[in-house]
Simulated scan of single mutants.
Amino acid sequence: MDFELSAGQRKLYDDIRDQVADRFGTSAAKAGPEAARAAFTTAAGTGVAALCLPPEVGGGGLGALDTALGLEAFGRACPDTGLTFAVAAHLLACAVPIRDFAAAPARDRLLRGLATGALVAANAMTEDGAGSDIGAIAATARQDGDDYVIDGEKSWASNAPIADVMVTYAVTNPRAGFLGVSAFAVPRKLPGVVVGEPLDKLGLTGCLAGRVRFDGARVPREYLLGTEGQGAAIFQHSMAWERACLFAIYVGLMDRQLEMCVAHAGQRRQFGRRIGEFQAVSHRIAGMKQRLESARLLLYRACWLLDRGGDHVEAAALSKVAVSEAAVANSLDAFQIFGSAGYLNGGGIAEQLRDCLPSTLFSGTTEIQRELLVRGVGL
């Protein structure tokens, strides 16, 4: 068992980290669609939007572990975690199912745009009555000639306000339960696709999210992903990649955060001493390091299993819980170490805490992951 990264993997990490650091020196303020789109395009120019896409469409052709390393480097160097999340969701929840299930020629046309950032994708699955429970989806799609007519509303779609294509899920056979759900890659320009205003969120402000309504949207059959009734399986496939790889952006964030805390504890003085000399502070930092490295190893293992085609469901659930809970706990510790300075916007610590909080919700809540884990142990 070799825990050492190869020279190629180290170069991948370093190249992305350096490119991102050059382009994103400071966190962006809460951005409107135009600024968010510009930031996304700039990020895509580093290759992070194409890591695991096929080389023939401009992608990096990487597996899950190397994709995670690239996203970790992105999260390490970019102070705008909302932007890193926007790109990772675009790649893993949208481009991956298009890569693996779309039919030619739509597949290659879409992937070429997604790889460069010329096209931005949004994952429109969540509804007011359906989140973790994909079987409760109310949106419908009926076949009409060579088209599908989609009706329904999605309550939350990250990237939607700037997206060009929506990966969405709708019921094509109400009598078949989860086997009656189908997946589509819907171009935004089609009549009947209506995107709402950006939602006012607590954090991840660099990733705009909005509601999406399909009002009799006629979607050509070429945009069906897989076959009718395969939507639930396609969604789980994309979630496997998302749960294994996306949380690498938080490993990168925790690396940067730990460095900030060590520097602050070495400079800030109270009672005539550097605060890092007090065990109340130094032991917090030790705990942050322990959580970070434990989460990193579980994430790498989940990606390694995904690459090998092994049973990765439990490993991804373990990784997702470990990384998200570590990110929240470490951000609370960083907040305590920085004190009142950490409560100020613009210094990074307050933003990190806000941006880490939703990590326990998206890609399947912590509670859903624990359900997967208890099933795995036989309960």
Rank of each mutant, 00 (worst) to 15 (best):
L53T: 01
C52N: 11
G32K: 02
A49H: 04
A35C: 03
A43M: 15
G61W: 13
A49N: 05
P33I: 07
A43D: 09
A35D: 11
A64W: 11
G58K: 08
T46R: 13
T41W: 08
G59D: 07
A49K: 04
A31C: 13
A36R: 01
G61H: 07
G60C: 05
A49Q: 07
G61R: 13
L65V: 06
F40D: 05
T41R: 12
T41M: 03
A44W: 06
A36T: 00
C52R: 03
A50F: 12
T46H: 14
A49S: 15
G61N: 07
R37E: 08
A38K: 13
C52D: 02
R37W: 05
G60M: 09
A50G: 12
P54Q: 04
A39T: 11
V48N: 02
A43E: 14
F40W: 14
T41S: 12
A36Y: 02
L62V: 01
G45T: 09
A38R: 10
F40K: 02
A49C: 10
R37K: 13
P55G: 08
L53V: 11
T46K: 11
A43T: 13
L51K: 06
K30C: 10
G45R: 13
L51F: 03
D66L: 06
R37A: 14
G63S: 07
R37V: 04
G59S: 05
T46P: 07
G63N: 12
A64C: 14
C52Y: 00
G60P: 04
P54M: 09
A43R: 06
A44S: 15
T41C: 05
A44I: 10
L62H: 04
D66F: 04
G32S: 01
T41K: 14
A64R: 12
G63E: 05
A35Y: 01
A31T: 15
G32F: 01
C52S: 09
P54R: 03
F40L: 14
E56Q: 12
T42L: 13
G47C: 06
G61P: 05
T42C: 09
E34H: 13
P33N: 04
V57F: 00
T42A: 15
G63L: 08
F40E: 02
G47S: 06
G60N: 14
G32C: 01
G63P: 03
A64L: 07
T46A: 10
P33Y: 00
T67Y: 08
R37S: 14
L51W: 06
T67V: 06
A39S: 15
A38G: 09
L53R: 03
K30G: 15
D66R: 15
T46C: 04
T67L: 09
A36L: 01
L65F: 14
G45W: 11
C52L: 04
G32M: 01
A44R: 00
D66Y: 10
L51I: 08
T46Q: 12
T41I: 11
A38L: 02
A39M: 10
A36H: 01
A36F: 00
P33Q: 03
K30V: 14
G58A: 05
G63H: 10
G60S: 07
T67W: 12
G61M: 10
A38V: 08
A49F: 09
